[in-house]
Design a protein around this nucleic acid. Structure first.
Length: 595
DNA sequence: CTAGGGTTAG
């Protein structure tokens, strides 16, 4: 008896599941039709799920197959299916999301069969379009269609339209903004769609401006808007805003969902407030692997490797099984904290204790672990013994170690090998020319620079950002974007003099120019973070902590200069690198010079 | 039957 009751629904589910996989596995239209015929024989005439999956499977095969399928489905001989009309096609559209399959064939069929789209059609359609590779053209096509059918004023349509346009980036963002501006009713959803689009395409400044406007307009952000705004904070290192959001969440009646708390932990840590992140983490009622990974990664970024390792152990003890990403976190903590033996232990435990096959990222962490610790030969040996092919990232890790630890010959060889693999990537040639400069082979260096010029390859320009009183300031080397540059350059000169008196010796070896030493020193002063620090020293009261964010890694000279500045000017200076934090205080850096 | 979203080596 018990058996009968429990097996009946499960058998039906199983059949349906089988239908779907049968349809999805069809590789051509004839096979698909064959599959459908079989399913109909099993009595699926009115099973909507099966029929919509059939339509979706046909759409995957291409417009021709989709047309044939729809003609079949909606032909009179297939009655009474035509009663489903738009509903069937809407559901087909829905079933395409979030897979990246193109929904337009289904939509055009719908029009061809003169089935009128209704107000469910456009959101489904636009949602599916957002997930396709280049949604701009499709979005504007559907936009026109929505206007023609009189659905452009529907708020669901507007929100999905903003999302679809914004997903395209570039000009799509402007189209999205236009729809956004024309939307009469704005909800947190409208704002999330627009803000999310900005964040997705690297315009986090615009995202935050809009987030502020939202509050100004009296619209209460909900948890999705907040998570989106937190992503923008991460991009910009906007600590003030991240902390403000954190307290906002604490005092307002916003559901503290697992997702939201994870986003808060991640954002606070990445904006420089690990202790704030730990506080949120401690108060969480429920934690998943992402919560643990975020907090471990946050500790790793701040050189708190031992704590990260303890956290990893606590996680295991609390019954959460580490996954591949969590291992990346703990291995990163070991390499940034110079915990070589712990790193070895965790790497080994991946296979012995948890049965994972380490991925290239894990091998990369190990190479970094040995490299930072100065064990360059060991790192090279590790790469040689790797069972998977090292990728360019691994090579670059090793190359960075060779440069820092002075293994010039090895570095040069590895860089040449990298260039063979990636001949079109400009930065690789810069790396090679660096080694030539370090070994003072200027002709070789100029040869490379010449080749680069010929092929129009260039270096990623470095920039720094600084947040002062809620405003974000940009600095690029040379500083031509700044209106007050004269003042800043004078400050840079003054800093240089003071540092020299304090015993600072500029490191010129990282410069690529073979000009005389004095000029080299000059050129080093223009690195974007030096400009940012000078500006911050001018604009803030003594004792204020200075926070800088960079797109590249800190160069050796800036690192030692900043250590001196922190002592001479008695300031705490926090620099967020590409991958970690440096907290300069009293002439020392929290990274203990491992970076 | 409708909309916006989270951790990942350098």
């Amino acid at each position: 008896m018990q058996n009968l009751i429990s097996s009946a629904p499960s058998r039906r589910r199983c059949t349906e599941q089988r239908c779907i996989s049968l349809l999805q596995s069809a590789t051509s239209l004839p096979r698909l039709l064959q599959a459908l015929a079989f399913l109909l024989k099993c009595g699926n005439q009115s099973n909507l799920l099966v029929l919509t999956r059939f339509a979706a499977a046909a759409a995957i095969l291409g417009p021709g197959a989709a047309a044939a399928a729809a003609t079949l489905l909606f032909s009179p001989s297939f009655s009474p299916l035509h009663l489903y009309d738009s509903f069937l096609l809407n559901t087909s559209l829905q079933s395409l999301s979030p897979s990246p399959l193109h929904p337009l064939p289904i939509f055009s069929l719908m029009l061809r069969l003169q089935l009128p789209p209704n107000h469910f059609t456009f959101p489904f359609l636009l949602k599916a379009i957002s997930a396709t590779p280049s949604p701009l053209a499709s979005a504007s096509l559907v936009h026109c269609s929505a206007l023609r059918f009189g659905f452009a004023g529907d708020s669901f349509v507007q929100n999905t339209l903003i999302h679809a346009y914004a997903s395209a980036g570039g000009a799509g963002l402007e189209s999205a903004r236009k729809v956004f501006g024309e939307s009469p009713k704005t909800s947190p959803i409208t704002f999330s769609a627009m803000i999310g689009g900005y964040v997705l395409h690297g315009r986090s400044n615009d995202a935050i401006v809009l987030f502020r406007q939202m509050q100004y307009a009296g619209i209460q952000p909900d948890y999705v808007t907040i998570m989106t705004a937190l992503s923008a904070c991460i991009d910009l290192g906007a600590l003030d805003l991240a902390q403000w959001i954190s307290s906002f969440v604490a005092k307002e009646n916003i559901p503290k969902t697992l997702c939201l708390c994870n986003a808060l932990v991640d954002a606070l840590a990445k904006c420089g407030d690990v202790d704030g992140a730990l506080e949120v983490f401690d108060q969480m009622l429920e934690r998943n692997i992402i919560s643990w990974t975020s907090v471990i990664d946050g500790l790793a970024m701040h050189s708190r490797g031992m704590e990260a390792v303890r956290m990893f152990e606590t996680m295991k003890a609390s019954g959460v099984k580490p996954d591949a990403v969590a291992f990346i976190g703990v291995l990163k903590a070991c390499s940034h904290g110079c915990l070589v033996s712990d790193g070895r232990h965790y790497f080994a435990s991946m296979t012995t204790e948890f049965g994972f096959e380490p991925r290239i990222e894990h091998y990369g962490c190990m190479v970094d672990l040995f490299s930072r610790a100065g064990m360059v030969e060991e790192a090279m040996e590790f790469v040689r013994a790797m069972p998977i092919k090292p990728n360019p990232v691994v090579w670059r890790t090793l190359i960075a170690a060779c440069r820092i630890h002075g293994n010039l010959q090895l570095g040069e060889n590895v860089t040449k090998r990298l260039i063979k693999e990636e001949p079109l990537y400009g930065s690789n040639y810069v790396l090679l020319s660096n080694f030539y400069a370090l070994s003072k082979r200027w002709e070789k260096k100029w040869e490379i620079r010449y080749t680069m010029g010929q092929q129009e390859m260039c270096k990623v320009p470095g920039f720094s950002m600084l947040e002062l009183n809620g405003e974000i300031y940009d600095f690029v080397a040379g500083g031509e974007k700044l209106s007050r540059h004269q003042e800043i350059y004078e400050m840079v000169e003054e800093i240089a003099k003071k540092l020299k008196r304090a015993g600072y010796v500029p490191t010129t070896s990282e410069m690529l120019l073979d000009i005389d030493d004095e000029d080299k020193e000059d050129a080093l002063h223009w690195h974007s973070e030096k400009l940012a620090i000078a500006f911050a020293l001018l604009k803030t009261l003594p004792g204020t902590r200075i926070r800088i964010l960079k797109n590249l890694r800190v160069c050796g000279d800036c690192h030692s200069a900043t250590k001196f500045i922190s002592k001479v000017y008695q300031r705490e200076i926090v620099v967020r690198d590409r991958s970690r934090f440096h907290c300069f205080k009293d002439g020392a850096c929290s990274c203990k010079d491992f970076w």
